[in-house]
Simulated scan of single mutants.
Amino acid sequence: MTTTVVLADDHPIFRDGLHRTLDEAEGFKVLAAGASAEEAIALVGTHQPDIAILDLSMPGGGLQATRQIAAMANPPFIAILTVSENSSDVADTLEAGATGYIVKGVTGSELISSLRSIAAGEGFVSPGLASRVLRAMSNDSGTSKDSEALQDLTHREEEILRRVAKGMSNREIAEELNLQEKTVKHYMTAILSKLHARNRVEAALIAHDAWSKQE
């Protein structure tokens, strides 16, 4: 199955390199590339890709593009690819509707692996940023409130969430717990509902926050 992509970055050399990396990767096809938020929004509307990869600091702003793309009738998964490691940027883009946040400087193989997780709807935040995002979210009363819902999780749901918090994919969790991948997805739906989380990244942050306080 081919994952279609629209990408937007205002640095031509980086944009062209990213384009080549995706073209050479198995299972990805770049449909179009732009250099601004305005172009990104238009290209997504025209091509209806599976993933939109957006630079945060491009003209018009990646955050604004994320908000508008996420509000479309049938939005793609949104991956932010940026140099910023600012925790507020991560929190803001996830709140706006991004599924993943990738810091530039990753290897090609790491990027492809991250995008595969995002394409599966599993979400991704670059390693090392989670703790900073947790601190940024600590002032959000909803985080502490939702963390109380962890007590409502079944033993199996907690097992799965602990692995999600470690960055494991549904497939990896299924293999480790000897479950069907679709069963893990079913559990994740229940977990997100109980935690009032928009996606698995937010669920992982809620869990990480609560469990770290217990240690």
Rank of each mutant, 00 (worst) to 15 (best):
M1C: 10
T4I: 02
V5E: 10
A8M: 04
D10P: 09
D10W: 06
D16C: 06
G17N: 13
L22V: 03
D23L: 00
D23I: 05
A25R: 11
F28G: 08
K29A: 11
G34N: 02
G34A: 08
A35N: 15
S36E: 12
S36P: 03
A40N: 04
A42Q: 08
L43M: 03
L43R: 01
G45Y: 11
G45C: 10
T46F: 07
H47R: 05
Q48K: 11
D50A: 06
I51Y: 01
I51P: 01
M58T: 01
M58V: 00
P59Y: 07
G61H: 04
A65V: 03
A73F: 03
N74L: 12
P75A: 00
P75N: 00
I78V: 12
A79Q: 05
A79T: 04
I80R: 05
S84H: 13
E85H: 14
S88Y: 15
A96M: 10
G97Q: 05
A98W: 05
K104M: 06
G105I: 09
V106R: 15
S109V: 06
E110S: 08
L111A: 07
I112M: 10
S113D: 10
S114Q: 13
I118C: 02
I118Q: 02
V125R: 03
V125S: 02
V125Y: 05
R132T: 05
R132K: 14
L134R: 08
S141Y: 14
S144L: 07
S144F: 06
S144R: 02
D146F: 06
A149Q: 12
L153G: 09
H155S: 09
E157Q: 15
E157G: 15
E158A: 10
E158Q: 13
E158K: 03
E158R: 11
E159H: 09
E159M: 13
R162A: 15
R163Q: 13
V164W: 10
V164Y: 13
K166G: 14
N170V: 04
N170T: 07
N170Q: 14
R171N: 06
E172H: 11
E172I: 09
I173W: 07
I173H: 06
A174E: 04
A174R: 10
N178T: 09
L179Y: 13
L179K: 06
Q180S: 12
E181L: 10
V184Q: 00
H186T: 14
Y187D: 13
Y187I: 01
Y187R: 04
A190C: 04
I191D: 00
I191A: 00
S193C: 02
L195A: 00
H196T: 02
H196V: 01
A197P: 14
R198V: 00
L205N: 15
L205V: 08
I206M: 08
I206T: 02
I206C: 04
A207Y: 15
H208W: 09
D209F: 14
A210P: 04
A210D: 07
S212C: 06
S212Q: 11
S212D: 06
E215D: 10
